[in-house]
């Protein structure tokens, strides 16, 4: 009954239970954080805009992105993955979401930033619908915890429009 093996087993079970409980509590404390992140995006230039030989429109643009995501960080935050997606509707597709830029923020100090960049991933439509197309730029973030539940949210910035002609 009180053999070494029995005690070792009881100790291990207890330790794992406590550890799991602490992890769950750490994850739960994240729900008390009500972040107020800010994001601003400017399309500075359309670098080029054409139709590929296969019939799909492609556009390249220069973006100015500034954001303050410091309020997302809590003691249980390992990193924040942030990305900017172009979102628009076409006749064929109810939703097109194209990631244009992303970044990984690992500390609160780096969570207030601005960057000047051309799109990191290619902005290609499924078809030829981009001329004069209105689109939203949406700043999404996914908070990866040290342990527990992952959180995500976004800011939608509407009112962008692509040129009427290829260039």
């Amino acid at each position: 009954m009180h053999s070494f093996g029995y005690r070792a087993n009881a100790l291990l079970t207890f330790a794992i239970t406590i550890l799991a409980l602490i992890c769950a509590i750490a994850s739960f404390t994240d729900s008390f954080n009500h972040p107020t992140p800010l994001a601003q995006v400017k399309v500075l230039n359309i670098n080029w805009f054409h139709k590929q030989p296969n019939g799909n429109d492609e556009v390249s643009m220069t973006l100015n992105i500034s954001a303050d995501l410091q309020s997302l960080f809590t003691w249980n935050t390992k990193q924040v993955f942030v990305f900017l997606a172009a979102e628009y509707e076409t006749k064929k597709n109810a939703l097109n979401q194209i990631s244009l830029w992303d970044g990984i923020i690992q500390s609160k100090e780096h969570a207030k930033f601005w960057t000047h960049t051309s799109n990191k991933y290619r902005f290609i439509d499924q078809g030829s619908n981009l001329r004069g197309k209105e689109f939203n730029l949406t700043m999404h973030w996914h908070v990866m915890p040290k342990t527990g539940k992952m959180l995500a949210d976004k800011i939608v910035i509407p009112g962008y429009r692509l040129p009427e002609e290829y260039r």
Partner: peptide
């Protein structure tokens, strides 16, 4: 892996 592009049919 992470999803970077989505096209959803109407």
């Amino acid at each position: 892996h992470r999803v970077i592009k989505v096209h959803e049919r109407e």
